[in-house]
Structure formats: structure tokens, C-alpha cells
Design a protein around this nucleic acid. Structure first.
Length: 837
RNA sequence: GCCCCCGUGGCGGAAUUGGUAGACGCGCUCGACUCAAAAUCGAGUUCCGCAAGGAGUGCCGGUUCGACUCCGGCCGGGGGCACCA
């Protein structure tokens, strides 16, 4: 028996065996209960680092555990393979995005295989292959036909040099991140998915996701942003461009008598109409269009308005005109793009009113005496009753809201309604490396869906990135097609789909992948929803919301009867590492920093990233310490939802433990556990083993891997110290089973050495014997006035009287009591006695 | 600005419903083995104190026989949203 575990030799041997035997193939035979464990699939950016490893190892432990518990486990892996970095690489290095992506996939797959993940590789796919995106096009057309896809003009950040649309994150200080050119706002025709149709369901559905972190549910709730209020009509004193008035949205209709102005967005139709005859207003509207849409810019932007000269009529008083402003802080795409200003009770309206000398009337007062208390620099948003509000006086805000809505509905000038922060999902991207939108534009017929038998619409290979802009748009022939309806000349849509579409249904494709359809609903429904989904918090909103939407949309159109895609969600922490910079601020790898001439600054400990050059590759670690040491370290110490700092001492500690475990198992195996005939003294070892079984199981189920690791350390120490006995032999065997999801290579090796048949991957998870979990003796804490003074050992279940008597017999207690009788004695059976002096 | 989370040894972190704070790991100290080192093993390691003992979970206060845990108010760190009417 080897004294040391040699991962260099053993890891590959077991990995090969697992692969040959198809050990981790999901069978779907229906004989066992199913478990679907999924980690968010990676973007093939180049190489994986240990941060990815942590993510996949967590899912792997769970998958292996579930398999041993008797589940038919689906644990797949694939590639979120469309995206901008491939196009950037194409522009920089003159490589085709496809070649770049596929070569990265090769590399990263090989890297992942080194870790020994229990993955069903037979289901692997990449979203950039027509095999996948063709089905996505079919699903897109399903939604299109169901009316869940539409086209509209929408404002985008346009980089005039690169001739491309930029995401908000790509706009830095108002300039394109790549070209440095000032970004323009431009209106383009874009495709949208009607996610707002599902706003209510998506919000309500959060209530049932009790295996999601509260934080993520809250974030989604805020993102959806439901606001209840009312919509009502302002009549204009004089019609504008044939319009007699317009609608506003408010959450505080109760403050309607505090109104002192109305304001509309710069791009509101009324504003545009008024601007036509008013050059100063036109200039103001143009000015509002300048400036980016980033948060920082909005924060510093001054609240500005322009008095149009037009007047609106107060809905509850025909003799009360209000000035109509165009204001830069009113957004066209929230509510109705128009508001009424109530300066006394809204800070922004107050600032605006003060600036333009508008009246400020208090209509809510905390007490009757304060009804005419003037408003200072701060708007009053606290509780109170309505004042100066005619028929509303004396009502609470809630009653006032109800009253105004009731009256408006009765008189027909307004109604109770709901506004959402959530907007429809714009999915058009002016890029090459994405799923082509399967639509053809015909001059005669307008936009027409590509015929199903012509799918997939495949990306052309012969493209060039020499000139800026979308290569699909410039391609000499690709876009030229005949109209599917009239056969006349037509042009393909050259925009591609947002890559978030690709990741909105990949988990369905993993569950079922027929060649002629996106999925088989019956087979997919057997696996879905995903039992445990694991990934980074950075996807808490967009990806998870889009996937929830897509699933519900498929349900609505009758394609798949699943409501929520992910039953359990776990957001894991990052792996962090120190960063280094040289005197010019260039990032250095830790190795470079060590051998660098000149000053080196040791920076913050940060999330591993390519740009900060602080990533740690798995290969050298696996070469030196083996996959199991790496896996063990990724699970140790830090709670999985928090960040884990990479450290050399950490991986070394893991290596030590792996060897310790091996020694323990190998010694036992060398002796022949089954033939050991020594005395089986009851040292309490069996109890320790069974407590460990219960604890490790519970902690894995709760994804508290750091605690499961601590349990295994404890059990290992206890077994090492225990005298040789059958109990110890059984204990070691149990330990190996319990540790096997974390250190599978070592576990297989030890399992074989112990003479066990078959793979430990197929072995049963040990069951804790309830009889052995019950303590016979317990340690009782003895307190005086809540301070620990002594401990004593008592039989489990000892009576209150007996415990009290034992506690009072304690010398230490007696010394503190100094002969005085205790005032009171609190006894918590099996736990403590508190003597109150 | 609004919403949320977190503050425990030198470090990462444990601590069912309020019931022995510091499990487990890292690091460190001492010791064993060794010519020596590595590896390994043993002991110790919250702070003050030789000890007896005392203090202690960011700070202040409260509830309770008893508070890391519950409540109120501060301070510090992190995250999300952000002209949302």
C-alpha cells in the first residue's frame, strides 16, 4: 500500500474510468427520483481560473451526493458561446469569432476535465452552433406568432465611429469605450419581447421561490418595481396640435389639491408639438437630449424646466389653471411621461417650484394645528391627514387616494392603475456573433417570419471586421433573400439576438435535446425545474429574470408546462486574490511582481479577473497537489456564499488533509478491515461516526460545505486517535464515503484499496442510526446569575429536581452563594442550570 | 437619496427555537523524530493576569434568570436601485 496518495497518477486513471463507464450519464429511466443540478454555464472567454472551479465543485459535490443518495442526477455542462469578446478578438487579432470561441471551448473543456467533475458530457453543447441557435430561432418565431415579440423605435447609445450600439456599461464619460468618440442617442427600430406582460406573474412568482436567497428576490422585486396609483387626464386650456389634453400618472392622488404645475417629458408628443412653434422650447428639448444616460450623469444633472406658456385645467376645479412645463427629469418611458407637481410633499417638485417661483401649498399635516405650517427646504412626506383639500380634508392618505380614484372613475377623468419600472426587453443587437433574428423585411409585406423549413438562419462565415459596424449589414449577399410571402425582393434582419436570450432556455435543452425540435416537452418536464441552480450574484436580476420570463412565455403559448425554471438558487461568492501594480500602474501577475525590478504596489485583494492579472490557473495547482486538494480547498473555510481568498497556505493545508485521509484509509486497508477481530470497546466512536453522518448530510443539503468540511476534519481526528477496533474500521469506511463527493479521486482509490467492489460513485450514502444520535450523557452548564461557574455531567433526560440538586451541590456555586439561599433556580433539561442569587 | 445585508481571536470562520462564545482550518509558539531540513506526530494559542480571577461578539442603551442571537439609537464596511412621479 502506497504511503502517499499520488494524484498525478490516480486522478487521470479514475477520470478515464468514469468516462468509459458513463458513470455520470443521466439515465432518465424513471426508476429513480430525479435531481437536476446546474451551475451557470460559462462564457468561453479563454481559460478557466480557480474562481470557476469553486462554482463547479459546489455543484459537483451536490450532484455526487444526490447520486449516492439514490437519485438519477442530471448535471450537465455547456457553453454560453455568443458574445462581444469574440468579436473584439476578431478585430484585434484577425481571428474568426467562431474559431476563437471553439478553440477556447477546447481549452476550457480540457481544464474542467482535470477537476474530475461528475458531469454528463454527452449533453454538452455550445450556443453558437446552428444546432442550438436554430431551435432558438424557432422559439423566437413561436413567441412572435403569439404576439409576444414586437418592433418599435427605441433610443440607443450610438457610437458614430464604430457604427455600433453600445450598452450603458460601454459608455464611459459620455464616450464610446473603444473609439473614445462622443456617444449619440439615436433612434433605431428594434425588436422587443413583452416581458412587461408578465410583470405581475414574475412578481407574484417570487413569493413561491422559497429556496432562493431573499436578497435576490428583493432585487428582482425592486427591478420589477410595481407602483400603484392613478392615471388621470389634464385638459389643456387651448388644444395643442389637435390634442385636448394628456394623461399623467401619480402614486399620490390624495395630494391633488397641492398641485402647482404640470410637467411633461422633453420627448412627449405635446412637448414636440409645442416646440414646433417655439424655437426657445425646441432648443431646450434638444439640450435635454444631450448627455448620456449613465447613473453618474443623471445624478449631477440639474433639474431644469421650460415654461411652455400653455396651461392645463385642474381636474377638480375648472377655474384652476396650472402652468405646463417641459422638464428634463420627467421620463417618457415611465408612467405616461407626464406628471403633476405637488411641491409641498415631493422633494424634487419642491426644488423645481422654488427654482421657478411656483406656489407651495401644504395639503398633508401631521396634526390639525400644523395645517398652515409653511414648508421649508424639505418636502413633507410623513404621515398625517389631508388639509387645504376641500372635500378631502381630514382624510388619511390612504382614504384620500381611494376617494380621489373613486371620484375620478365616477366622473370619467381618471382611474386607478399600476405603473412598472420594468420595461420590455430589447433584444436587437447590431453585431455579428449572435443568433440571427429569423425575420425578413419585405418592401411590400413588411417584416415577415422566416419559414420554419428554412431554419436555421445560419451566420455567414465569410465576414470581415476591417471596417467598423455590423459585418452582417455589410455582407454582399447574405441579407438578400426573397420574401417568404410574396416572393419579391427582401432583406434579412441583420441584427442578432441579445445573448441573454441564449441563456434563457439552455437549461431546457440540457434536459431534452431532440434533433428536430428545441426540446421534447414531456422529457423536459420530467427534469424541470432545476432543483439546484448555482452561480454568481451578478446574474441576480437580468439572466434570472429573463429565464423566468422565457419559461413562463413558453408555458403561456403551450410549449412547456413549467412555471419557474429554478426551484433552488444559490449565489456563490468569488475567489479573490492579491493584485500588484508597477510604478506605471500596469497590473502584474504575482509571479511577475516577485521578480520585478522597480517599485511594486501591492493592491487590494480583488475578484480574480483577466484584466487585473490576478487569476490562478487550475493546471499548475492540479499538477502539484492534485484535483482533490484543489476541490477541498475550494470548499473549506469560507461559507460558499462569501468570497474565498486564494492562498498558498490554504492549498497546502488541503494537501496535508488529503494525505492524512489517505494514510488513515491505507493503513486500515493494509490491515484488512473486514478481517479485523480485535475487541470492540465502546469508546463512543460509533456515536461520533453517526453524528458525523448526520452533520455532513445536513450540511451538504444546506450547501454549507465549509461546515461539512469541518465535520470531516473532526471525524478524521477522532478516527486517528481511536484504538484499533471493528468500530474504527467501519468508521474509516464511512469517512471515505462521506468525503467522496469532495475528494472523489482519493475516495475511489481508497475504496478500491479497501477491497470494495465497484465505484464509490455508485456506493450508497451512509445512513445515520437514530439510536446512535441520542446522547446517553450530557454536559450541563451551571451558571450563577447567567455566568458560567461550573459544568457537570448528567444522564440524558435527568429530572429538573435532580439537575437542580446537582448544581447546588457544586462547590463553585456554593462559594459564590456564600451560604445564602438562591432566590430562584432555572433549569433547562439537558442543557443548563442557572442559579439566581 | 431609497432599499437590503454584514461587523465574533493574528486570519478564514463555528455557535438548532435566546441557554457552556471562539467548533474546524490557516498562522504562530514550544516539544518529539532527524546530522540537518522537509514531511509527520504531540502540546498550546480570545485578551489581561504567575495564579486565583476578571473582561470579552463594532459602540451606547433596553428586554430577559440568561443576549453574538431580540428591540431602539449611533459608528463602520459591502451590495442593489436610482431624476420612477
Amino acid at each position: 500500500m502506497a504511503a502517499r496518495f499520488n494524484p498525478l497518477e490516480a486522478d487521470a486513471r479514475w477520470q478515464k474510468l468514469w468516462e468509459e463507464q458513463g458513470t455520470f450519464h443521466a439515465s432518465g429511466d424513471g426508476e429513480r427520483p430525479r435531481a437536476y443540478i446546474l451551475e451557470m454555464f460559462p462564457y468561453p472567454s479563454g481559460r478557466i481560473h480557480v474562481g470557476h472551479v469553486r462554482n463547479y465543485v459546489m455543484g459537483d459535490v451536490l450532484a455526487r451526493y444526490k447520486r449516492m443518495k439514490g437519485f438519477d442526477v442530471l448535471h450537465p455542462m455547456g457553453w454560453d458561446a455568443f458574445g462581444m469578446p469574440a468579436e473584439n478578438a476578431a478585430m484585434e487579432n484577425k481571428v474568426h469569432p467562431g474559431a476563437w470561441t471553439r478553440s477556447n471551448i477546447e481549452t476550457m473543456r480540457a481544464q474542467l476535465k482535470l477537476i474530475g467533475l461528475a458531469i454528463d458530457w454527452s449533453r454538452e453543447f455550445a450556443t453558437c452552433e446552428p444546432d442550438y441557435y436554430g431551435h432558438e430561432q424557432a422559439l423566437f418565431l413561436d413567441l412572435y406568432e403569439a404576439g409576444l415579440v414586437y418592433r418599435k423605435q427605441s433610443e440607443v447609445n450610438w457610437d458614430p465611429v464604430d457604427m455600433t450600439v453600445l450598452a450603458n456599461e460601454q459608455v464611459i464619460d459620455g464616450r464610446g469605450w473603444r473609439s473614445g468618440a462622443p456617444v449619440e442617442r439615436r433612434k433605431l427600430n428594434q425588436w422587443f419581447l413583452r416581458i412587461t406582460d408578465f410583470a405581475d406573474e414574475l412578481l407574484d412568482g417570487l413569493g413561491e421561490l422559497d429556496q432562493w436567497p431573499d436578497k435576490v428576490r428583493l432585487m428582482q422585486e425592486n427591478w420589477i418595481g410595481k407602483s400603484q396609483g392613478m392615471r388621470f387626464r389634464f385638459d389643456l386650456a387651448e388644444p395643442v396640435a389637435g390634442e385636448a389634453g394628456f394623461e399623467v400618472f401619480t402614486t399620490r392622488p390624495d395630494t391633488i389639491f397641492g398641485a402647482s404645475f404640470a410637467a411633461i417629458a422633453p420627448d412627449h408628443p405635446i412637448a414636440l408639438a409645442l416646440a414646433e412653434g417655439n424655437p426657445a422650447l425646441a432648443a431646450f428639448v434638444a439640450e435635454c437630449k444631450l448627455g448620456g444616460t449613465t447613473a453618474a450623469e443623471l445624478e449631477t444633472a440639474e433639474k431644469k424646466g421650460f415654461d411652455t406658456g400653455a396651461r392645463v385645467i385642474h381636474p377638480l376645479d375648472p377655474d384652476w389653471p396650472l402652468p405646463l412645463y417641459v422638464a428634463n427629469f420627467v421620463l417618457m418611458d415611465y408612467g405616461t411621461g407626464a406628471i403633476f407637481g405637488c411641491p409641498a410633499h415631493d422633494q424634487r417638485d419642491l426644488d423645481f417650484a422654488r427654482k421657478y417661483g411656483l406656489p407651495v401649498t401644504r395639503v398633508v399635516a401631521p396634526s390639525p394645528e400644523e395645517a398652515d405650517e409653511p414648508i421649508g427646504d424639505e418636502a413633507y412626506s410623513g404621515p398625517g391627514r389631508l388639509v387645504n383639500s376641500r372635500f378631502l380634508d381630514g382624510l388619511t392618505a390612504e382614504d384620500g387616494i381611494r376617494e380621489v380614484i373613486a371620484r375620478a372613475e365616477a366622473e370619467g377623468w381618471g382611474e386607478g392603475t399600476t405603473a412598472w419600472r420594468l420595461r420590455d426587453w430589447g433584444v436587437s443587437r447590431q453585431r455579428y456573433w449572435g443568433t440571427p433574428i429569423p425575420i425578413v423585411h419585405c418592401e411590400a409585406c413588411g417584416p415577415v417570419a422566416v419559414r420554419r423549413d428554412r431554419l436555421p438562419v445560419v451566420l455567414p462565415e465569410d465576414i470581415d471586421f476591417e471596417t467598423p459596424g455590423n459585418p452582417l449589414d455589410r455582407h454582399p449577399s447574405w441579407a438578400k433573400v426573397d420574401c417568404p410571402e410574396c416572393g419579391g425582393p427582401a432583406r434579412r434582419e441583420t441584427d442578432t439576438l441579445d445573448t441573454f436570450v441564449d441563456s434563457s432556455w439552455y437549461f431546457i435543452r440540457f434536459a431534452s435535446q431532440p434533433g428536430d425540435a428545441p426540446f421534447d416537452p414531456v422529457e423536459a418536464q420530467r427534469w424541470l425545474p432545476v432543483d439546484q441552480y448555482i452561480g454568481g450574484v451578478e446574474h441576480a436580476i437580468l439572466h434570472l429574470l429573463y429565464a423566468r420570463f422565457w419559461t413562463r412565455a413558453l408555458q403561456r403559448i403551450g410549449r412547456l408546462d413549467v412555471e419557474e425554471p429554478f426551484r433552488g438558487l444559490f449565489t456563490q461568492g468569488m475567489v479573490t486574490h492579491v493584485t500588484f501594480q508597477d510604478s506605471d500602474g500596469r497590473w502584474l501577475t504575482p509571479e511577475e511582481a516577485e521578480g520585478h525590478d522597480g517599485p511594486v504596489t501591492r493592491g487590494r485583494i480583488e475578484k480574480m479577473s483577466k484584466s487585473k492579472r490576478n487569476t490562478v490557473a487550475p493546471e499548475p495547482i492540479v499538477d502539484q497537489y492534485g484535483a482533490d486538494s484543489l476541490r477541498w480547498f475550494m470548499l473549506s473555510d469560507s461559507p460558499p456564499e462569501r468570497d474565498l481568498e486564494w492562498s498558498e497556505s490554504g492549498i497546502q493545508g488541503s494537501w496535508r488533509f488529503v494525505q492524512r485521509l489517505w494514510r488513515l484509509a491505507a493503513e486500515e486497508a493494509g490491515r484488512g478491515s473486514s478481517t479485523w477481530l480485535g475487541d470492540d470497546e465502546d469508546t463512543g466512536l460509533d456515536r461520533k461516526v453517526h453524528r458525523a453522518i448526520a452533520a455532513v448530510s445536513a450540511n451538504i443539503e444546506a450547501l454549507a460545505f465549509n461546515k461539512a468540511v469541518a465535520n470531516l476534519y473532526e471525524l478524521t481526528s477522532a478516527l486517528e486517535k481511536a484504538p484499533l477496533s471493528p468500530s474504527r474500521s467501519r468508521g474509516v469506511e464511512t469517512l471515505i464515503r462521506l468525503a467522496s463527493p469532495m475528494v472523489p479521486h482519493l475516495a475511489e482509490e481508497a475504496w478500491a484499496a479497501m477491497g470494495q467492489d465497484g465505484l464509490i460513485a455508485h456506493a450508497e450514502w451512509p445512513a445515520a442510526d437514530p439510536a446512535l444520535l441520542v446522547e446517553e450523557e450530557v454536559t450541563i452548564a451551571v451558571q450563577v446569575n447567567g455566568k458560567l461557574r461550573d459544568t457537570l455531567t448528567a444522564a440524558k433526560g435527568a429530572s429538573r429536581e435532580a439537575l437542580e440538586e446537582m448544581a447546588l451541590a457544586s462547590e463553585k456555586v456554593a462559594r459564590i452563594l456564600e451560604g445564602k439561599a438562591p432566590r430562584k433556580v432555572i433549569v433547562v433539561p439537558d442543557r443548563l442550570v442557572n442559579v439566581v442569587a
